[in-house]
Structures are given as structure tokens and as C-alpha cells.
Amino acid sequence: MKITAIEMSILTSPFEYGMASEASDSRGPKYAFILKVHTDEGITGIADCDSHPHIMKAFIEAPSYLHAFSEGLKYAVIGENPFEYDKIWTKMYQSSFYQGRRGAAIHAMSAIDIAIWDIIGKATGQPVCVMLGGRNHEKIKAYASTLFRNTPEEMIDAAQKYRSLGFKAVKFGWGAVTEDPSRVVPLVEAIRKGIGNDMDILVDGMWTSDVKLAIQLVKELGNFNVFFVEEPLKSDNLEGYKKLANAVDVRIACGEQLAGLYEYKQLLIEGDVDIIQPDVSRAGGLTEVRKLVTMVEQAGKLLIPHAWTSDILTAASLHLNSYQKNPVFQEFCTNDTPLSRELVINPLVLDSDGYVHVPTAPGLGVELNEEVIRKYTTDHLIVTN
């Protein structure tokens, strides 16, 4: 089997990102990046990528500047056998040396890598988690992932809504608490008083530079039994994260903005956070994050994948969680936007116990809704090298 082409579609949402007053929920990114990897045996792998779609397209389609050293990722991928995923990953990484082999380059590599694993699963008739090494779990507890509302009353209403939908956990992030981190305590207090103790509460997005303020706020949040606090500091502040993690009892989470094992190793050692949060579509794809699972387990930490785009990324994250020995949560984006909810014909759903089941069909186990893809596509390209 050989890879013959890479197809890229950039989709544009009719909505702007954020928490609009007329919306039933938060609205996700303005754009989506849908990628297909085609083979000479008629098997196609799919992926989405939680990164800037126009930049992803450029990284993949760019002409050769220096052969095998600085060129578009298409040169490292097309013509290769998808079962040689590690070889392909290494070629892509090397071919990105001069344009920056971390960050955006790994984001684009991640999308291609996820699609390659989808091909491997489809070619063998197995779900991706089996091909990763083991379907250790059939379902994963989900948390509703949304944005902070502006008032305590709105927070209580939102939390009650997610509980009525069957969620046993909810994460609120960004918005009001990024603008003013001190607002996080009364807003979280309102949730806990409003819904009682039968839901896990997770907090995201204070993103302050003030380590002492972060310590104070996280300690106060501990009074409301939050499961974790995600990115209370800016992600590059590793020294600050270590001070914070060692000063509080609440679990500290970080990692969605990192790419590649080198950066995660640095976070584990220098930041000493409790929970590592790779986004499979930014951290290096399943090939790289599969290795990270072992690294995190050996460090005595937890790994909870970040997934805030569509059911395509959620499915890839579910397979990673299934492969883990001790998964904790599956992030379940509740965005009220077609680019989150309508891109596949078999959407992932919550069961009555608040779990999402790991797909059982070959590959990722989700199938694109081509009609919806066409409706929202504003830029499209197929490269064949």
C-alpha cells in the first residue's frame, strides 16, 4: 500500500468564537481543517486539526526549499507505506528543520499522522486503539467542556443543563476568568452550591502571570472540591507551575499548547504538574502521544487529552484513552456550531452513565458527512507531489 495524495479542506463557521448571548452554548473556532490521506488501495484516512487551518495547509503544500530538510510535508508522505508510520513521522520532522520543526510543523504532522492511523485501522479491519497496542477500555467518562458564563446565576443554569444532559463532570474555561482571574472563585462557588456534590467540576483558563495570585485562587478553589485547575498560568511559565503545583493540593493541569515529546518531557520535569493534556492533533499525532502515555505513566502523572474541535478529534482521543492503562476523562466539546457537531454522520453520544463509548468500527470509527463538509468548505486542495 502507498500513499498517493493529501486532500485538505478549510471550513468556515457561520459564527464567531465565543459565548454569544443568543447561543445555547459556546461557539468554537471560526475555521476547521479537515484532512484526508488517500492510498492506492482506495482506503482513505481522515483527521481534523485544532490549529490555524491556513497555516496547516501551507506547511503541507509548500514547495521544496532544501530537499528532505526544508520542504512541504507532502514530500515526506506521498509514496510511503502508511504502515511505516514511525518512518513517516521522522521524515516529516526532518523535512521541517528550517521552517521550525516544533509548533505549527508538528500540528500539521499530527493531522497527517492521525489520518495514517485511520488508514491502518481500516486496512486491518480493527479500531485504532487495537492497532495502538490494546483496547483496554470500552468507554470513558466524559466531561462537558464549555466557556465560563458571566454571572453566578448563569453558571448555575449552565451546570444544571449539563447535568440534565447526563454529564457527571463539567469544565468551564476562559471568558470572564481570563479577563479577571479573581472572578473564578465566586463563579465556581455558585456552581458547587447550585448543583451539590454529585458532579466533578474542572476549571480552565485563568492564564495569569501572577504566581502568588494563582496559588491563592487555586487554594480557594480547593474548598469547592474541583478535580483540576487547567492552565492557571501561561504555559511557558514552567518555574511558576512548579511553585504552584508544590504549594497546593488541587491537581494542576497543563499541556494543550505543547508539541512533541521534548516539550512534554520539559513540562514533566521542570513544571511538575499533575495532569498532562496533549491535544492529539497538535502534540504529534497518535505516533508521538502513544509514547507520551508511557512517559506520563512512568512519571506517576495523569494524562487527559485535550479535544475541543469535532467528533473526529474526539474519536482519536477516545482511542488514545482506551489504550491508556488508567484513563480519567474524555473532554467532550459542547460547542453550538456545525463545525463541531455536524461533521460526521455517526456523532458520538453520551450514555446514561455519563460515558462516551470508544468506537468499534475499523480505524477512527467515525465517517465524514460529505454534504456538510462541502457546505462549509471555503478552500480546498489535493496535492499529489
Rank of each mutant, 00 (worst) to 15 (best):
G103L: 02
A283V: 04
H357R: 13
S26C: 11
S9G: 02
V280C: 04
A111T: 06
L132V: 06
K193Q: 13
M295A: 11
N225C: 08
L339K: 10
V349D: 06
G18T: 11
V248K: 05
V273P: 07
H54W: 08
G194Q: 03
G121P: 14
K36G: 05
K265P: 01
K2N: 12
N150W: 01
S9F: 12
A68N: 14
T337N: 14
I55K: 03
V188G: 00
N346D: 15
H357M: 05
A68L: 13
A158K: 11
V211R: 01
K122N: 06
V366W: 07
T12V: 08
L221Q: 04
N197Q: 06
A158S: 11
N246H: 10
S24P: 04
S310V: 04
M19Y: 06
G354D: 08
G45L: 12
V170S: 01
D210W: 02
A247G: 08
G45S: 04
A190E: 04
V349Q: 05
I10E: 12
Y241H: 13
I276Y: 07
G28M: 11
L73K: 10
D379R: 04
D50H: 09
G354T: 10
A214L: 03
F227A: 09
F59V: 12
Q216Y: 07
K2F: 00
K141A: 13
Y162M: 13
S235F: 13
G300Y: 10
R341M: 04
F167W: 10
G271Y: 05
T12H: 07
K291D: 00
V128G: 01
